[in-house]
Amino acid sequence: MQEVSRWHIVVPLGLPRISVEDDIYNGYHIPAGTVVFPNAYAISREVEDPECFIPERFLDTENPAQNPYEYMFGYGRRICPGRYLAENFLFLFAANTLAFFDIKEPSQDDLRNGLAHPADVKFSPTLVSLPENFTCRMEPRSQEHADIVASLTG
């Protein structure tokens, strides 16, 4: 989940902050009242091969990548109070999805009909960045899994 969160951060510029007093950061003077956008996207790119999806980068005990949960929910006194709930929800969502479904490449018919391949997914260049439409196949792992999902969806 850390690599999913790092690979494409949902709010690339974070939420704006206003400096309450004059400050100096890396030799730059920031006057009081300045609107500052924390560039979470740039922070997420401070790894080797940032465009590549490599979950193992967080398992390196000698030189682990910075945990994206440290910057994707904001900073300081105004950090998101729901961050722990969000982290747990992301984990449970991913774990349940992987437990119940096999996620497979799109069919050749889908690709011939112009649907995008997941490897070619593009993201919207907006304040909240979301993936554009793409296709994949999600198949229940068994009939029992399909029955459970059907009972949950009504």
Rank of each mutant, 00 (worst) to 15 (best):
M1I: 15
Q2H: 14
E3Q: 08
E3S: 03
W7N: 07
H8K: 05
H8D: 04
V10I: 15
V10C: 14
V10L: 15
L13M: 13
G14R: 01
L15E: 01
L15K: 00
P16Y: 10
P16A: 10
S19I: 03
S19W: 07
S19D: 05
E21K: 14
D22A: 09
N26Y: 03
H29W: 14
H29P: 05
H29A: 10
I30S: 09
I30N: 03
G33E: 06
T34R: 11
V35W: 12
V36Y: 14
A40W: 03
A42R: 08
I43S: 00
E46F: 07
V47R: 01
P50C: 01
E51S: 12
E51A: 02
E51T: 08
I54Q: 04
R57Y: 12
E62W: 07
P64A: 08
Y69D: 04
Y71I: 02
M72P: 03
F73Y: 09
G74D: 05
G74W: 10
G76P: 11
G76D: 12
P81F: 01
R83Q: 09
L85K: 07
A86K: 02
F89V: 14
F91W: 15
F93Y: 12
N96S: 15
N96G: 04
T97M: 11
L98K: 12
F100Q: 00
F100N: 09
F101V: 02
Q108I: 08
D109V: 03
N113Y: 08
G114P: 04
A116K: 10
A116R: 10
A119S: 15
A119L: 04
A119W: 00
V121I: 09
P125M: 07
P125D: 10
T126F: 04
V128L: 12
L130H: 06
L130F: 01
P131D: 04
T135Y: 00
R137V: 13
M138C: 11
P140W: 00
S142D: 01
S142E: 00
S142W: 03
E144H: 10
H145I: 02
H145Y: 13
A146V: 01
D147V: 10
D147L: 11
I148K: 04
V149A: 04
A150I: 00
A150T: 07
A150M: 00
L152A: 06
G154R: 13
G154I: 05
